[in-house]
Nucleic acid binder design. Structure first.
Lengths: 334, 334
DNA sequence: TTGAAAGCGCTAACAA
DNA sequence: TTGTTAGCGCTTTCAA
């Protein structure tokens, strides 16, 4: 355990033990027939000298980089960062279990230069896409390059490996649960309809109503509320109607809805109930606590990473993996 | 421009052009003497076939990985994420200009496993540290390994390359500016004193007062206000005194101070002024706008990355680089 | 069960 | 100015 220990190679081990490099290599990888005694000796030597194979050399021989790319929008909203951060944590964890590392690629709306560079330069064995659009250039590019990739979230492209929260089921069940609580007049306030996730949530909402024999009132569904003012307008519109509960499509929308209600001096939950299809730290400090669907982005990242690593190793993988959720019924709908 | 083009190597180019691999290599790197005509031909061929050198092979030959590690706390506060994100953007930009990529390493308080793995496995040529502590295990580890690294932010260790905002100067000037505005009774509310940055800000505050011939009242300086309730207590204490202006050490503290003032129905700036030593998106929507010091984390990241890349290339680099700032005098101190 | 040798794609002495 | 050759550290046929 010297400071700055000089780098030891497979050849050094071979010399020290009086065997060949081939044998050492096999003892390490476990491939091919080897005497178990030899394996022992090699393993011991490795432990003792803290030997680590050089991933470049290994990679060169195997056509592998032992790196993955993690693509996230460089211009993501502040409110999206916690999601990506927790994804990352899961990804890092899964990657390191297989001695892989994760290269960041920040992609802006139209400019994929960073992703293209990484892929063209053969810097990674696979790619994890952080968020997908209904029409997504990056997916088209990656497909054209034939490099393994997985999308976190759903997309409409054929034959794309996806790992997603089960939004449809969750939102349907969530909506149903609200209805069963006696909230029959629901209004949905949602974000960009170009996001797959928002499309699923909307469908889930509708299915939840239908399952409970309630009509879907298009006029009570407000999509594409991008700006705060759009959300505010939707809230004001809702208040003119006979609505029991505002269902917010995500945490950001929910927190804006809450703020606007506060400004309007509307009491929640006395005057109107509020629920969110996505729980997050943004809603942590609200009183009373917000009824919401809870997912774990870390699990999402972890699973996505495992899937793509399996794919890279040549295993068959499911085209779509859906992650669980739990529904938190809390004070905001009482 | 085929789909999935098969990988072309330096050898293919050599064959196609009837020259040797060495010549091709030289034509690409520009090292050694070469006929300019040859360079031309090679360059053309490369353009046409969109050839990219294999970084693994290049790395193996040069003992380089063409990767940097970017270390950030895995458990960072939500409010810190925008800072790290903007740093990242700058880092990515600088890295890609030199055909480098950035590997993420999320480090938790006590567990450096991820960093150690990356370094031991020789996955990177250098490391960028996202935030430093007064006593920082990671710095000690990296020093012991002799791997080039740069710290964003300052630290007390000898011989560590640092890139930081000029907090001391900024805060001193900032404090001075407040005093010149007639706010002579200042109170400082600050975070953990184990953070270097907080130590600098505190010193800057004190120097700003001293420069203006004002005494430093220890009792008006509240350090280590970690929790919201600690901040609230500090605010309440301040209100009992004859204080003109609360100087908040960072954006998070400031936004909590503002919230508490609101809850207490204290008017800002009528009853008391507020200023922040760190501007951020957290303060964007406050009315009136908050007087604050503005830095650009992206520049910080960009510079840090350039410095470490220079160091890796064997250049002499400054041990300490200080980045500029600007002071925004706004409504909150009028 | 083990080893010799070639090869992954690139660089860099050394020669020519 | 260009080419030959060896080598970076590892894997993998093919032989022994």
């Amino acid at each position: 355990m010297n400071y700055k220990e000089e780098k030891i190679t497979i050849g050094d081990i071979a010399d020290a033990l009086g065997i060949s490099k081939t044998t050492v290599s096999r003892a390490i990888s476990g491939k091919g027939r080897i005497g178990s005694e030899t394996v022992q000796r090699v393993q011991e030597y490795i432990k003792e000298h803290d030997y680590r194979p050089n991933p470049l050399a290994k990679g060169l021989a195997n056509a592998r980089t032992y790196n993955l790319a993690w693509v996230m929008p460089g211009d993501s909203e502040v409110t999206d960062l916690p999601f990506f951060q927790r994804c990352m944590i899961g990804i890092s964890e899964a990657a390191s279990e297989r001695d892989y590392d994760v290269i960041m690629s920040l992609v802006y709306d139209d400019d994929m230069a960073s992703l293209v560079r990484i892929v063209k330069n053969h810097k990674v064995d696979g790619v994890i896409l952080g968020r997908t659009l209904v029409k997504d250039e990056r997916i088209e590019y990656l497909k054209s390059q034939g490099i393994p990739f997985v999308a976190i979230g759903s997309c409409s492209y054929d034959n794309v490996i996806q790992v997603d929260n089960d939004h449809l089921k969750a939102c349907s069940e969530f909506t149903g649960a609200l209805v069963l609580k006696g909230l029959k007049n629901l209004s949905l306030i949602g974000g960009m309809s170009t996001h797959m996730v928002n499309q699923s949530r909307k469908r889930g909402f509708e299915e939840g109503l239908e399952t409970n024999k309630l009509a879907v009132e298009k006029k009570n569904i407000y999509m594409d509320c991008i700006s705060d003012s759009a959300i505010n307008r939707a809230v004001e519109d809702v208040l003119k109607k006979n609505i029991d509960c505002i269902v917010c499509m995500d945490d950001r929308i929910c927190s804006q809805v809450l703020e606007h209600l506060r400004n309007l001096r509307i009491e929640m939950p006395a005057d109107i109930k509020v629920a969110s299809m996505y729980n997050s730290v943004l809603l942590d400090n609200v009183v009373p606590a917000i009824t919401a669907i809870n997912y774990d982005p870390k699990e999402l990242g972890y699973e996505a990473c495992k899937v793509i690593l399996n794919k890279i190793s040549g295993e068959e993988v499911a085209l779509k993996t859906l992650m669980g959720y739990n529904i938190l019924m809390r004070g905001s709908t009482n």
